[in-house]
Design a protein around this nucleic acid. Sequence first.
RNA 1: CGGGGCGUGGCUCAGCCUGGCUAGAGCGCCUGGUUCGGGACCAGGAGGUCGGAGGUUCGAAUCCUCUCGCCCCGACCA
Length: 568
Amino acid sequence: MRWSKLFIPTLREVPAEAEVASHRLLLRAGYVRQLSAGIYSYLYLAQRSLNKIQAIVREEMDAIGAQEMYLPALNPAEVWQESGRWDVMGDNMFRLKDRWQRDYCLGMTHEEVMTAIARGELRSYKQLPQIWYQIQTKFRDEPRPKSGLLRVRQFIMKDSYSFDVDQAGLDVSYQKHYDAYCRIFTRCGLKFAIVEAHSGSMGGSQSHEFMVASDAGEDIIVLGEQSGYAANLEKAVSKPVPPAVPDPEGDLAPEEFHTPGKKSIDDVSAFDGMPATSHIKSLVLMADGKPVLALLRGDHQLSETKFSSAVGCGEFRPAHPAEIQDLMGAEAGSLGPVGVTKMRVIADLALQGRKNMVAGANKDDYHLKNVTPGEDFTCEFADLRQVAAGDTDVNTGEPLQLVKSLEAGHIFKLGYKYSDTMGLRVTDEHGKELTPIMGSYGIGIERILCASIELYHDADGIMMPAAIAPFTVVITPVNSNDAAQKAMAEKLYEEAKAAGLDALLDDRDERPGVKFKDADLVGIPFRVTVGKKLSEGLLEFNIRRTKEKKDIAVDDAIAAVKSALASS
RNA sequence: CGGGGCGUGGCUCAGCCUGGCUAGAGCGCCUGGUUCGGGACCAGGAGGUCGGAGGUUCGAAUCCUCUCGCCCCGACCA
């Protein structure tokens, strides 16, 4: 391609609305333009990059025997009502009506449609396993689109779905995806971690996320270097730091003491001289409308995902002050488990075996000391605590790392949720009805693009891996008035194309500084500069990523690019 | 949905508090010339219903009310 003919609207100045690096650079380098909140147009450069990413995804999916399909983005309400997700998805789903006032939605994902196809057509166990996939636009009415292309309302997703006769078959399909995903992210040049994940409202048993470390990410992952432990914070477990002081000995009875105006754990702790680790934090939560008292060690945080799975509830929220007063007879600052009978009491595992701790007295401005779980109050125990910095690995005892990351891929063992509710049945080898077991596997295509920019950029611009960069090499004649340079650049460009390289000729009538700056900003991995040393038969070869530059003979140029590409 | 911020040529912003000539700057764009190895210089030029509606006023980019949009923090996030 000839740069002079292309639409690559680079910006010298940083657009005001861009915060994260990938967003800023995608705008500045002329890859994308925003149309509305969370809705972007992908211009020529972005489209080239995304095409390369999709080609890699396609190759690797095809390699595991997955079959690509193209499915409707516009879905009738019926299929979503059958699976029950018409209601579950709430405001996150774009909904619309046709001229007859029938309900439709824009697909957020395609379990329903895929299952609908499967149940109409799959008849026999002999047709299984199947892996079907699509690379298509998904729509989600995000409450808060942000960070450029990282959280948007319309985006491209590769999603695949597996149908197997049994759990063992699902395990195989799952593993195939796991391996394919590793190859995909590796080929796209990303450094990534694979973590155990919470399966969320997708249901299902097992789930892994493919995460790229980045401050622009929205998740935190927990990593143990030696143990290889890797989990999303939502689900991670750890050994907490031990209590700062041992519990008082003896079978002591709870004893009330006055704590005027002391509301938070920190307040009470400073007042009674006992560390936060000796206090019990009491939280009243309304889970599906019913009150639950959650207990944690004073220095610990409640994990919302762990709480809702422990309680088995859908939605929950902190109780309102009036509700707390009504249920507990005291304000939020003086709550405790002793004497609570009207609701479920669930204590975090870190409280198991502790004794003589401090808790609220359920009487304003009073606390109790010598409170012992199991003795002074009864409760269930469950893992409720969010892993915190300083925690150690359950097995090896090594310190765990908490790393901010962005999710680029996610694989789920769905189980029977959709096949069951939507009535997908085939005949088994004995002629009886069999419900196939499903898996679902997603990759955010734009997230690969963003992640690679987040990972690889500098003050000058993008340094994307060559495998997914919009062009591989740019040929830059320094002086467009120099006939010899111009001719040589043209020649090199033709040779590069003939050699199968994705080449760009910067034939613009611009000063060299502009061309160099643009090439760096856009992130073209290699540059061949045709300049004043041409008279000596030399060109300059630059590598964007390493800033390496060297003179090469005219005849070696194409080979140099190819070898640099091969080793990139 | 709660909190905060911002809407002025294509981009970045000034002007607004304290209302007053014809609304400015830099970058970008167009024309001509000089230049040509890291976002050149000179000269000339085009381009703005100041997000929108209503109000106050002799007079509104500026003050008031409403509204729309965008960004950030939080909540949310198969």
